[in-house]
């Protein structure tokens, strides 16, 4: 018994484990793990002082701040509107609901470069939407605000898609109980429905954030790419690469991976806590 439990693989009569497992490992190793390991080794090979000199370069810090800041704002916007859209799609029946539901995944299917030039065309000062903001003195395209707009587009589906199935599963009886006990509708939604959605909302927020931090294609068209102002970290990596400054590019990449890892780990820990607190698995 103990020897079976210690064994790497439990016995099975199905064939092909060696072949499929070996192929999976070799493919994953060559395509994914090897290049990423080289990236990590190269950044470690820079040495402690050299790494921090490159990583704390003011232009790099400004780019990282914009990438993480704009991503957080975009994820927060999608948290609110994603919940609202999921609510409308799950709870209400109206003409065009199925079409809207299908359209939610557009940002996954539309290449980011296409999204980037299309959003720029709309939110530029003479664009369909931008023209209404220009007289108010608000510039959207070619500013950090433009980056936020692009990131909202790119990360829109995550919150909707994580909240939808949980919302559809929720037992309406608890809402009925709240209503019969005299709670207003708003109070019921706030105190009864929302808490059980917290873990799903957090998961959606995290996915949206992770996607936004790494996004490149859509942002570079709309943000204007002014150093220290509207230049995102992935773009700075590309710029350093074009200057053949590989150490700087590697250092920025290592910083992005490091901060993302700590950030996502923290959010996942909060998620684990909230699942215990609100007792609803996603």
């Amino acid at each position: 018994m103990t020897s079976a439990r210690l064994a790497f693989k439990q016995p099975s009569i199905l064939p092909g484990f060696g072949l499929s497992f070996g192929f999976t490992l070799a493919y994953l190793g060559l395509i994914v793990l090897f290049p990423l390991a080289v990236l990590i080794l190269k950044s470690a090979g820079l040495g402690w002082t050299e790494f921090w000199r490159l990583a704390l370069d003011p232009r790099t810090v400004a780019a990282l701040r914009l990438s993480f800041g704009a991503s957080a704002i975009a994820a927060a916007i999608n948290l609110v509107f994603g919940l609202l859209i999921a609510w409308v799609l799950v709870r209400y029946r109206f003409v065009g609901r199925r079409l809207i539901d299908a359209m939610i995944d557009l940002p996954f299917a539309l290449p980011t470069a296409v999204a980037g030039i299309a959003l720029t065309a709309i939110y530029a000062p003479n664009g369909w939407v931008g023209q209404f903001f220009a007289p108010l003195g608000i510039k959207i395209a070619y500013t950090p605000l433009g980056a936020v707009v692009a990131l909202v587009f790119v990360s829109l589906p995550f919150v909707v898609r994580t909240v939808e199935p949980v919302l559809a599963e929720i037992d309406r009886e608890r809402e009925e109980a709240a209503a019969t006990l005299g709670a207003s509708r708003l109070l019921t939604v706030w105190r009864v429905v929302l808490p059980s959605l917290v873990p799903a909302l957090l998961t959606g927020f995290t996915l949206a954030l992770a996607r936004s931090i790494g996004e490149y294609g859509s942002v570079i068209f709309i943000a204007g790419n002014i150093p220290y102002v509207s230049e995102i970290a992935p773009l700075l990596i590309v710029i350093r690469l074009e200057e053949f400054d590989y150490p700087a590019a590697t250092a920025i990449a290592a910083m992005m991976l490091g901060i993302s890892f700590v950030l996502l780990l923290t959010i996942n820990l909060i998620g684990a806590w909230s699942r215990r607190r609100f007792g609803h698995a996603v």
Binding site: L39, A210, G214, P234, I237, A253
Partner: peptide, 13 residues
């Protein structure tokens, strides 16, 4: 979960 730009960079390296 890896930025596409970073994966491109890894392949350049």
């Amino acid at each position: 979960s890896v930025s596409p730009v970073i994966s491109g960079l890894a392949y350049i390296l």
